[in-house]
Each structure stands twice: as structure tokens, then as C-alpha cells.
Amino acid sequence: MSKSLSLPLDAGVAEKATPKAGRVRIAQRLSGLAGLSRIASPLVLLLLWELASRLGWLPTRIIAAPSAIVGTFAEMVWSGELPSHMLVSLARIAKGLSISIFTGTALALIAGLSRRGEIIVDSPLQMLRTLPFLALVPLFILWFGIGETPKIALIAFGTVFPIYLNLYSGIRSIDVKLIEAGISLGLTRAELIVHVILPGALPSFLVGLRYSLGISWLSLVAVEQINATAGLGYLVNSARDFMRTDIIVVCLLVYSLLGLFTDFLVRTIERHALAWRPSFLRS
């Protein structure tokens, strides 16, 4: 019985499926074309830029030709100049961010877990948060000199607020019932923090981390103008002195690539650390 019934059913399904699949394929092809046309416009602009440079309408003093920029980029990578400066910059960011993650987490725990802590920590931080931190450069130079310390300190200062604010609100929004469950399971305060509070606030923390990474690149540009002898900011500054617009553009490109890379990094962390979230589980 099932055979005689299932045959026409299957046939019907097959008939329906073919045009649908065809339509899907066409749609894919169309979206591929749309993707191409999206690239086409910037490509044309690039070509126009190259043409203008070759014809002398755009002098190198204003901006170098795209081909020259690519050449410089390749040369700087090859010679190891760009990687070494990048490493110096990355190290500064890593140091500044680790300080701000550590202090931001500690402060958020103090303010998030006790009323007294909130009174002591939160209001001064909310006041400092409104300072445009780049305006602190002169003060930091007076305090820390012109070596590495003010650079790292300024990155740390600029990035601590997003981490603190997001983690603090994440801790405050944890379901009290989970904390009670933790207490009923006999967890100590430290265990509660490690197993319940911090993992529960992790999504908020990662939002803060993304903001902080963005700010860290921004502050890098500023701090590397303080008497730096290495780093991307130093490269840009010295290129300006020699009117090397190609190097300046290469550095700008590197900044944006590094921004993309760190965003990708945080997203990868999210995918692994937040694998338990219903939204991730469904996808």
C-alpha cells in the first residue's frame, strides 16, 4: 500500500522541487553579479585615481598612486620594516588592554557586587568617563615622561571604561535566582564569581571588549606621536616629514586591516565562549 501511495507523492515532490532549485540557482547567480557590481564601482574609482596620478593631475605630494602604494606596501613587508613596527604597536595595545581588562573587571566586580563598592567606585568612574582622554596626553607626559609608560597608560585609561561599564551592567543584570541557586549548592563567594557571575556577565563583557579594541587603535594613533621611535604612529609621523604619502596610506590601510582583524578575533572568541547561548545554538 505504501509503495503505490508513495510513488505519485514522490513524483509530485520532484516536479515541484526542480523549478524551485533552478530558481535558487538563478538567484545565486544574480546575487553573485550584484556582488561583482558592488566591487565594480570602487574598482573604477581606483582606476581613475591611478589615471589621474599617471597624468600628473594628482601630485605625489597630495597622494601617491595606487600602484605606488601597493609597491611600497610589498617592499615594506618584504624588508620587515612594516611587521616590526606593527609588532611594537600591537605590543603596546596588548599591554594597555591587559591592564584595562584587569582593572576594569576588578572595578566592575567591586561596584557590581556590593552597595558600598558601588558608591565608592561607580560615581568617580562615571565622572572620569566623560573626560576626553586624549586631552590627558600633556598631563601623562608630565607624570610618566616620554617613554613607553605614558603610551601604555593612556591606552589603558581610554579602554578601561567600556569594559567597566558593560561588565558592571552585565553583573547587575544577572538573574538573582541563579545566584541563589549557587548559594543553595554551597558555592563559596569566589566560586560564585567564577562559575556564576563572570560567565553570566561574559556577553556584556565582550561587547565592552569590542568597544575597547576600537578605542585602543584610536589612542594608538595619538600616543605614538609622543616621541616614538617605533610603531605605526612613528611610521606615519616620519613619512609626513619626508612627504611620503605612499607610506602614510599604507599605514592607514594597516590600521583598518588591524581593526577588521581584531573584530574578527572578538567574534571568534564569542563563538567559542558563548556557544551555550540559544541564538548561537540555533545557527
Partner: peptide, 14 residues
Amino acid sequence: RAAVFQEPRLMLWK
């Protein structure tokens, strides 16, 4: 002692 509540109160991240 141990308790079970109306909601399971599981840690979603474990």
C-alpha cells in the same frame, strides 16, 4: 541540603 525550585535555575553556560 539541596533544593529544586520552580524554574530549573541551571547555569546556561555549563
